[in-house]
Design a protein around this nucleic acid. Structure first.
Length: 154
DNA sequence: GCCAACGTTGGC
DNA sequence: GCCAACGTTGGC
């Protein structure tokens, strides 16, 4: 099993939105970056756990945990001319973008802020805390996962 | 809202 | 294949 961190803007789709989807979860669609795509398509697997990260908000940080309930499949929004994430260069025969299905697992009592994470020496290898990083999907090591879970308030 | 960082596009 | 122009991300 692997661990991940997925970013999302709470104004667009936050952890409460995922919670509201209930058991069936939500396709993690709209990712349009090749590095992130490759991870979603090749490495993110059913059963993996995800830190849900809120970006572009007052206090950016990890707000809870989600789980992958289905391996990635072609992202339907790339084929829909009406969709924000429509990609005219993609085709049904040769889809370019993929999304796994994810489901809400838990929400932390308080956000583990980016600011806090940056101050922890054990987490300096995380892409998240490195300057200029814009990846919206990134791997989290088992050690990092457990360390961060240890910061969660009861 | 600003802007640094970085990815993508397209002319050559 | 280079690289300038442009677009997007995301912290602040």
């Amino acid at each position: 099993m692997s661990y991940w961190l997925f970013k999302s803007e709470p104004d667009t789709f936050g952890i409460d939105d995922l919670k509201a989807r209930g058991k069936k979860g939500e396709p993690w669609d709209g990712v349009r970056n090749y590095q992130a795509r490759n991870m979603l398509r090749d490495d993110v697997k059913k059963g993996d756990l995800i830190f849900f990260y809120h970006s572009n908000t007052k206090v950016p940080g990890i707000v809870g945990v989600a789980e992958v309930i289905k391996d990635a499949f072609p992202d339907p929004t790339q084929f829909d001319p009406e969709a924000k994430y429509y990609d005219p260069k993609s085709s049904q025969d040769n889809p370019r973008w993929f999304c796994p299905q994810v489901r809400f697992k838990s929400k932390f009592k308080s956000t583990i802020s980016l600011d806090e994470l940056k101050q922890i020496p054990a987490l300096q290898d995380m892409a998240l805390v490195r300057k200029g990083n814009r990846l919206s999907v990134m791997p989290v090591s088992e050690d990092q996962w457990h360390f961060i879970m240890g910061m969660v308030q009861e």
